[in-house]
Computed example of a mutant assay.
Amino acid sequence: MHIAILTLHVSLPGCASLKEKRQRMGGLHERFGRNPAVAVCESGEHDRLEASEWTFVAVGNERQKIESLCSEIEDKVQRTVDGRVMNVTRELL
Rank of each mutant, 00 (worst) to 15 (best):
E20P: 08
K21S: 06
N35S: 08
G33K: 07
R79Y: 06
L8T: 09
G33L: 02
L69P: 00
V57W: 02
T80K: 11
D82P: 01
M1E: 07
V88N: 09
G27V: 05
E91N: 02
K76M: 11
E30F: 08
N87W: 02
A4L: 06
P13S: 14
T7C: 00
H9E: 15
V81R: 07
E62F: 07
E30T: 12
K19D: 09
C15K: 07
N35F: 06
A4N: 06
A39Q: 07
E20Q: 02
K65A: 09
T7N: 02
E72T: 14
R63Q: 10
E53W: 00
I66C: 14
Q78H: 12
M25K: 07
I73E: 08
V38N: 11
N35M: 10
E62A: 12
N87C: 01
I66M: 09
A39R: 01
E91C: 03
H46I: 01
N87P: 01
W54I: 05
L69S: 00
F56E: 12
R22E: 14
G60V: 04
V85K: 00
E42W: 07
E53T: 11
H46V: 07
H9K: 15
T7S: 02
F56T: 14
F32H: 10
L69E: 01
P13A: 11
L18N: 03
Q78Y: 10
N87K: 07
A58T: 14
L93A: 09
N35W: 01
G60M: 06
R31H: 13
L93F: 10
Q23R: 12
A37F: 04
V77Y: 00
Q64K: 14
E72W: 12
R24V: 04
L6W: 05
I66H: 09
E67I: 04
T55E: 14
L6E: 09
V85H: 00
R22M: 14
S52C: 15
G14H: 10
L93S: 10
L6A: 10
S43D: 15
S17F: 04
R79N: 13
V38K: 06
I3Y: 08
C15T: 14
T89W: 11
F32A: 13
E72R: 15
V88A: 12
V88S: 11
